[in-house]
Design a protein around this nucleic acid. Structure first.
Length: 453
RNA sequence: GUGAUUGUAGCUCAGUUGGUUAGAGCGCUUGAUUGUGGUUCAAGAAGUCGCGGGUUCGAGUCCCGUCUUUCACCCCA
């Protein structure tokens, strides 16, 4: 194959796209049901909008877009000769592909603050790009389905996110667990051990706990300056707790005095108070103190959702960010949101054969013919059928009838209308059910009745 | 970004220590069957062996580069 796709990007053939849209539609309809409004932003952002928001690793994964025109001429000889990529970059590119949908949202909200109705509830389903090495469930171009609420501190929004996630995955028939944590509690731990200055490194290490056992990370914790006793203590604390009064009480008992931890626990209590009476099953939501999340901008509650059946990393993630719009000049606007990764959801559902029932075509009937006269007649009949709300397709060529049947079968069209001289003369339609191999002669009205089930 | 790994017909894959004209199954086309398919039978088309370079009398096979795939890190949806 001479022309392959760019690394980590894919084509979506019709059969795939039909299934993707099925998932997207479910997600979108739930978003709408909760009162979120759509937003789209450009694929391209100013590079300075994107840099510095995702941590060091994030910046490395940004796709940069080279300036048009004679970009090389604008680099001075000295910089060019020294081959320092970072410095040259500043001269030759000023745009980049978006890395997620949250930062563009913050930019949008900050610059449209006067037109926006707050609290601002928006959903956004668009591709994002990351210059990562691809592997299973990891692509360089993938779609995120985001919802965010900005301009309110109310923790009902966190509870709402959980409800939405539960509804989405219930509708999709996927067994998942929603893991939640709170950055305030993680900060409290870091404070307790006086490693707050190393907070990012600390969260990076504990985030590995889902893949590695605690023992193998001991050296990492030691490198933070923690004593053996402290590490043993951590081992007891960094685990999962049930998301109910019992579990939160356990947590609170650990950090009796630390104000940040108490704040974090109180947030859990409040979020739980909204959900207490809903029909969540006990294992749908878990508090997981080893959940950290890499993105730098989270300040409160954080979420991550994983499939119970497939290990492909997380299929959704998000959290509360108090200061994200501040870097775009808008203070005191807190936001909370979550992003669903449709590509991973698709991969899991495909593997679990949960998408096999999706029909590739909405067409109810294929009109077949033996000659030009039949085709012309069918062209008119198809128009009449469509006018009566029936999606119909005329076989687009004059070929043997069995070819036409095979075409219908491949496109999962159950019915065919067979038009020959006899049908044209009498005005009666021959309707055949390909699945049952039955066939009957019907009037136009009866055909509509038959196909309108 | 680090270290591995993959690529042969539309698809899944064979292809010996380097040796003539690169094979199979499925699929596809045509016919048996000129108004009724999915079975069966017969025939047929199909490949710059990912791409570029090198070694060799000779490369699908060995070497280098490159693109792509998958995997482990890093990190993440």
């Amino acid at each position: 194959m001479k022309f392959s796709n760019a690394k980590g990007t894919r084509d979506f053939p019709p059969e795939t796209l039909v299934k993707r849209k099925y998932i997207l539609n479910i997600i979108e309809s739930v978003f709408k049901k909760f009162g979120f409004m759509p937003l789209e932003t450009p694929a391209l952002e100013q590079l300075e909008t994107l840099t510095g928001k995702y941590g060091n690793e994030g910046d490395k994964l940004l796709f940069k877009v080279i300036n048009s025109g004679d970009f090389a001429a604008k680099v001075d000889d000295e910089t060019w000769k020294n081959k320092q990529s970072e410095k040259i970059l500043r001269f030759i590119c000023e745009k980049g592909l978006r890395y997620d949908l949250t930062v563009p949202l913050a930019r949008f909200v900050a610059s449209n603050r006067n037109e926006i109705v707050f609290p601002f509830k928006r959903y956004q389903m668009q591709p994002v790009w990351r210059a990562d090495r691809p592997q299973r469930g990891r692509y360089r171009e993938f779609w995120q389905c985001d919802i965010d609420t900005l301009g309110t501190n109310c923790l009902m929004n966190e509870a709402e996110i959980i409800s939405m996630a539960v509804e989405i995955f219930k509708t999709l028939n996927l067994n998942v667990t929603i893991f939640i944590n709170n950055r305030k509690i993680l900060e409290a731990i870091a404070e307790k051990y006086q490693i707050l200055s190393e907070f990012t490194r600390f969260t990076n290490i504990i985030d590995k706990l889902d893949k590695n056992d605690f023992e193998s990370l001991k050296l990492d914790f030691e490198s933070l300056g923690l004593s053996n006793q402290q590490i043993e203590e951590l081992k007891k604390i960094l685990k999962k707790y049930t998301f109910d009064t019992n579990g939160i009480n356990q947590l609170k008992d650990i950090f009796l005095t630390n104000p940040k931890a108490i704040a974090g626990c109180n947030e859990f209590y409040e979020i739980y108070s909204y959900l207490e009476k809903s029909e969540l099953n006990e294992k749908a939501v878990m508090i997981d103190l080893s959940l950290a999340r890499g993105l730098d901008y989270y300040t409160g509650c954080i979420f991550e959702i994983k499939s119970n059946e497939e290990t492909i990393g997380s299929i959704a993630g998000g959290g509360r960010y108090d200061n994200l719009t501040e870097v775009f000049g808008l203070k005191d606007v807190s936001g909370v949101g979550v992003s669903f990764g449709i590509d991973r959801i698709y991969d899991i559902m495909e593997k679990l054969k949960l998408l096999n029932h999706i029909r590739t075509s909405d067409v109810k009937v294929l009109l077949c013919h033996f000659d030009k006269n039949g085709q012309i007649y069918n062209f008119q009949k198809a128009a009449e059928l469509r006018n009566n709300g029936i999606s119909a397709e005329v076989y687009p060529d004059i070929k043997k009838i069995n070819k036409q049947f095979e075409y219908a079968e491949k496109k999962e069209i159950d019915f065919v209308i067979i038009t020959g001289e006899e049908e044209i003369n009498t005005g009666v339609l021959t309707l055949k059910n390909l699945k049952h191999r039955t066939q009957e002669k019907l009037s136009f009205e009866n055909v509509i009745e038959r196909l309108n089930f």
